[in-house]
Amino acid sequence: MTRVAVVTGASSGIGAATARRLAREGFHVLVASRRTGRLADLVAEIAAAGGAATAVACDVTSDESVADLARAARQVPGPVTLLVNNAGGARGMDPVESGAIGDWQWMYDVNVLGTLRVTQALLPELESSGAGTIVVVSSTAGFTVDEGGGGYSAAKHAQTAVAGTLRLELCGRPVRVIEIDPGMVKTDEFSLIRFGGDADRAESVYAGVAEPLVAEDVADCIAWCATRPQHVNVDRLVVRPLAQAAQHKVYRAS
């Protein structure tokens, strides 16, 4: 029987790479995002490679939209065994004293409440499968802080708290909770969105770093954790590029 995986934030970056990888692992992947045009292209790409995927328009900040996602998941033949809470993002690098409240609100809504909504909506399906897995894509910002990153770090700390609490609360039930914490990952959009479309500033984040992580590296970690035997729970996987020893320690070639 085909297993069903749901991936949020699947229109680009880590989400799209994860959808491709899970399809290769044999999952029927529900790819969820607000940008349906990109999802259609992704579904066609997966189908051309011999996989199966279904596009679902979903805004994780909307109760109604997430309810629609849960209904769509129930309509796909096969048990829903995997949820990848990937939707998220960062806005701004302002210090706490001048941080834009709107940016902080958006980061909390998408990263934290988005994870909460989707998890609540799909947990009954995951549990009824008898072998469910919830993956929360957080960040190394979820357990450390850096100047200018207070809003994003606060949101990711909260998302990490949700994952840890959920693991405790589901103990004894057939659902694993896995947290993936990437460090420096170079994708097409993350830093561009964070800096309001300033391409030069976004590119400067990776200046001199020969090999930052890419989306496929994180997708590989997600797929590996999710395909371990069900009794194996990888509580937290921290993954950084070799050049990044810590949040504040990055080797940059001159």
Rank of each mutant, 00 (worst) to 15 (best):
G151S: 12
A87T: 05
R34G: 09
P95D: 12
L69K: 10
F27Q: 04
F143A: 14
P124G: 07
A207Y: 04
N111L: 02
R20I: 01
S129G: 07
S204Q: 09
P77F: 11
A5G: 09
A246W: 13
L237N: 10
V56C: 04
G183C: 09
D41W: 01
V112T: 14
I178H: 10
R35S: 12
L237W: 13
D109E: 15
H248M: 13
T165I: 07
D63Q: 10
E97F: 08
A67Q: 05
G151R: 05
V110S: 04
C221R: 14
A72M: 05
E211M: 01
G15P: 04
A163S: 09
A72G: 03
P77V: 09
D181Y: 03
E125Y: 07
C221V: 15
L170Q: 05
T187L: 05
V4L: 05
V29Y: 02
A207K: 13
G148Y: 04
V110L: 09
V80E: 02
D200K: 03
S254E: 15
D41F: 00
T61V: 11
T119Q: 05
E125A: 14
I101L: 15
A158S: 14
Q159P: 00
V137T: 12
G183A: 11
L122T: 06
A53P: 01
S98F: 08
G37H: 06
S65P: 00
S11F: 07
